[in-house]
Design a protein around this nucleic acid. Sequence first.
DNA 1: TCAAGGGGCTAATACGAATTAGTTCAGGAA
DNA 2: TTCCTGAACTAATTCGTATTAGCCCCTTGA
Lengths: 353, 353
Amino acid sequence: MTGARRRVTQQDIARMTGVSQATVSLVLNGRSDADVKLSAETREKVLRAIAETGYVADPIARRLAARHNRIIGVFTYEPVFPSANSDFYHPFLVGIEQQAEVLGCDLLLMTSAPVVDGRRRIFHGDNRLRLADGSVLLGRTIDRTDLARLLAEEIPFVSIGRRDDAGGPVPYVGADYAAATSEIVRRAVALGHDRLAYLGLGAGPESWADRGRGFREAVARAAAYGAHYAPPGDPVEPADDAAIVVRDTAAVLDAALAAGVTAVVAEEHADGVALYELARERGVSLSVATLGEPTRAALPTAVEFTSLRIPRQAMGAQAVEVLTALIEGAPGERQRLLPCEVVSGETLSERGN
Amino acid sequence: MTGARRRVTQQDIARMTGVSQATVSLVLNGRSDADVKLSAETREKVLRAIAETGYVADPIARRLAARHNRIIGVFTYEPVFPSANSDFYHPFLVGIEQQAEVLGCDLLLMTSAPVVDGRRRIFHGDNRLRLADGSVLLGRTIDRTDLARLLAEEIPFVSIGRRDDAGGPVPYVGADYAAATSEIVRRAVALGHDRLAYLGLGAGPESWADRGRGFREAVARAAAYGAHYAPPGDPVEPADDAAIVVRDTAAVLDAALAAGVTAVVAEEHADGVALYELARERGVSLSVATLGEPTRAALPTAVEFTSLRIPRQAMGAQAVEVLTALIEGAPGERQRLLPCEVVSGETLSERGN
DNA sequence: TCAAGGGGCTAATACGAATTAGTTCAGGAA
DNA sequence: TTCCTGAACTAATTCGTATTAGCCCCTTGA
C-alpha cells in the first residue's frame, strides 16, 4: 500500500484527522477527567484513524514521558537458561513469568551485564536496570554492595531469598528456612532424638544462616544437645564457635557417632545423602534430614529423604507482586517469608530405628 | 548523602563542569571525528565529574534519540518457562541467551501478549514489539497473517524454523529436515529397503512439509516404492494425494506390511516408537526411523532410535546473529538451514533384519 | 589588514508521547 | 453590552540523550 514505511506516530494521526497531537494522546489514554473534555465525534474520528493505520504507541517514548513502561527486569547472576539439566532456578522463573503474564508486563532478562569472575555484574558502564520499572534479583548470594547501591539509588527491586539489611531494609520474598528447620528438629525430638547435629557451614548466604539459627533455637528450646559440623570439600570458615570442622563424610560420621548423635540435619541435600548412605553401608542407625532440594548433584539414592520443599514458584510470583506494589507505592509488607513444606521421608525415624 | 534523590543527568554534569550538555554527550560517546574536537582538558574534567556522580546514561532516552537499544525481543506462543519438564524450547533459548550475552544485548520476553485460544497474540492493542530492536519468534507454527504483518510493518524479526513466504521472504534459521530425511532414506535404501513408507500428516507446519518432501524426493531418486500414511489420533487432512489415512497404529502396521513395506520413516518420534514397539510385539521385522526428538511423550523404550538431532542451541544463537545483521543492515543471508545430525540407532537395520 | 582555516565548543533540534496551562468559542446571566 | 462559565481543544513544555549546524577565537599566510 504505502512505499517506504515509517513508523506511524501520534503526529501522523493528528494530521490525518485535523486535530492536535495532544488530542490524540488524550483519546488514546481515554482521559475524560474534569479538566479534559473531548467530543464523542472527535474521539471516534481519532479512533477510526488509529484503527486504520494500526498505530501503536512507542513504548520507549511512553516510558520517557510517563516514567513507566510495564517492564519487569530479571537479573540473575548466572545464565537464566542454564545448560545443565538440574535447574534450580527454573521454578522461580515459572512463577515470575506467570505473574508477569497476569499483570500484563514484559520481562527483561539482563543478559547484557558483563560477566566477571563467572558472575554477572549488576552495575557497570552501560547499566540497563532503569530500563525496567523495577527488577527481580535472583541468585543464591547477592553482593551486599550491589544491594546497598540499589537501595541508595532508589531503584525498585525485590530479592528472591531473604537478605540482611544493606544500608536499609531489603525488599524480598524468601523461604522461611528457620521455621522449617525448627519444625524438623521438633519432629526429631518427638521421635526420641535428644542428641542432634547440624551439618553445614555457618558462614554463607542468609539462607544458610537462617537454617543454622532455626536449628540452634529449636535445640535450645528442646533442651537437647546440638553439635555443628562443617561438611567436607568446602572452604571451611565456620562462623559458629560450636562447629567442628571435618574434612570428609567418614570423619563427620565418626565424630557424630562418638558424640552419641542419633540424628543429623544437613544444610545441603547432597551432604545429607552422602552421610546417610555411608551410615547405611556401615550398618549404623542414623536419622538424616536435609534442608532443601538437590542443588548439587547428589548420590543416586532410592530412599525418600526427609527434607524441605521450597515454594519456588510461589516465591517467584510473589516477588513480582511485591515489586509492583513497590513501584506503585501501594501499601503492604515489603518482606515476605513463605512457609516451607516439610517432606516427611523415611530417613528421619524413631531413635534406634 | 543527598535527601530526595533525582537521577543524575548529562545536564547536571554539564552544570558541574561548566560545559554544555552536548559536550557531555560527546565525551560520553568518545566522539573524536573530523568534525568534533574536544580538548583533553575538557574531556578529563567531564569524565571526572561522571566518575564522581556515578552517572549512567538513561537507556530509555538513549533509545529515543538513537532509535535503537540493545534489546532483543523473544516472542513465544507458549510460556517461555513451561511447567512441563520435557521442554522442547529450552535449548533454543539457551542459544539465544548465549548469543545475546556475547553481543551485550538484553532479552525482552513478550509475556504481556494476551492469550487467546491458548496461544499468545503477537498483534494486539498495546503491542510491545517495537520496544526491542528486533525479535526472535519461536513456535512450531507461526500465524501466516502475523508474519505478513511483521514484514509489511518492517519490524525486524527472525523466525526459528523455516517459514514459507508470507507476502515476501521470511527471515529464518531452520533445520534442514529435507536433507536429513533424504539421508535417512538413502541409508535405508543402502540397507536393502526398497519399499518404504512415510508416517506423517502432509498438512501442517513447514517443518513437516520439509520432511515429507525430503522423503518423496529421496524415494524418487532411489527409484524405490514410497507410501504415505497418516498417523492415528490426529485430525487428518493429508495434503499429499498418496496418503493413506489410517486411524490407529495397528492399522498403519497392517497396511504397511500388506504393501510389502520394510522400513517406515515417522514424522513424529512418538508415532515411530509406537509402531516399532507394536511390530516387535508381533514379532515382525520392521525398520523404523523417526524425524526428530521427542516432543510428545513417547512410550518408554529401551531401544535407541534412528532419528534426527536438531541443532536447537545453534539455531537459537544463529537466529540472534541473523537478527542483528538484519537490524544493522549488514549483508548476509537472511535464511539459514542448519544441518541435522542423523542419529544412527538400532531401529534401522538391514532388510529382513 | 584581511581572509582563510582550523580547533573547541554550544545552540538548537529531533525523537514520540504525556501533561499542563492556556485559548477560543458559544451560550447564559446580569 | 459585558461578564462569566464551561466545553473542547491546542500550544508549549517535559522527559534525557544524540546530532548537526554554526559560532567564536586564535593562528597563519599574503
